[in-house]
Amino acid sequence: MSALLAVEGLCVRFAAREGRMVHAVEGVSFSIPSGGALGLVGESGSGKSTTARAIAGLQAPSEGRVLLDGEPFGRQSARSARARVQLVFQDAQGSLDPRRPVGWSVEEPLALQGSGTAKTRRARAFAALDACGLDPKLSLRYPHELSGGQRQRVAIARALVCEPQLVILDEPTSALDVSVRAQIVNLLCDLRQRFGLAYLFVSHDLAVVRRVCEEVAVMYLGRIVERAPRSELFASPRHPYTQALLAAVPEIGRDLALAPLALDPASPLAPPSGCAFHPRCPRRSEVPAQRCSLELPILQTHGDAALSCHLAAGAVPRAHPAAPGSGASRG
């Protein structure tokens, strides 16, 4: 099966103060099939946004590569290739030029492609706004004249107008009001269905990711610690970090204050040794011989899922990987 997007061993490192390096993303690999949706979740500092930016070409990877349909994809790619990958930011206000009517912003990607005449570009911008549930009349308004939800719809229309194959969504619902968030979540699901889009959905909101994506990868301090189909990950999370994340999601009737983690997340500037999660891990005592604090667990694939935890490595004998295809439904 050839993937639409394949990320192989992606590393992004920044120079920090005092000559230190921040390993924002370390050896991240995953792939998204055509029309698939992968959720990338994790807390702030987990490197999920940096991963998205590196794939979009906004950040040069230090190592590794990004393949789109088997072809290397990045800053050097031709405009026509770039148009196939679009990015939607968290802050819709900031992603639209404040001094341009929003219709202009929706047309901009087309103008950059040099496709069509001014009239057909406008036509497609109108239609894209329409598809995103906005009255095309609003294309004459300035961004500040629209509500937060409307601005995010404009940003999505701008991403769609070039008919991309992959849309990278970086926290697209985080800045929205509760009652508007549901509208945008539904819109994203509808659009994917309608146009056969693939999504890379970066979010800290697991409930939203569960709605939108069939597959979820959990990142912690720059690495993927668990990847699984939606049905598996939410029903039976295996990594202690995933378990802690899910337990901390506010739900009606659930007492959040019951099972907090002992510590706050470590800084990416000073990641702990061994498994980066070990100082906070409530289950590290189950692994013998301080292995968690000494040895970095490797991400092991078991069928559809992958896990990087010493706990599982002990529990699941390597000779017998888990049965493949357990409840993964794509499409």
């Binding site: 029309g35 036509a123 497609r124 239609a127 894209a128 598809a131 146009f195 056969g196």
Partner: peptide
């Protein structure tokens, strides 16, 4: 089935919208 490339937002849509 998703619409064919280049036809997501056809001129027909524009006529309707316009």
């Amino acid at each position: 089935t998703s619409p064919r490339k280049g036809e997501w937002f056809s001129d027909a849509t524009f006529e309707r919208v316009a």
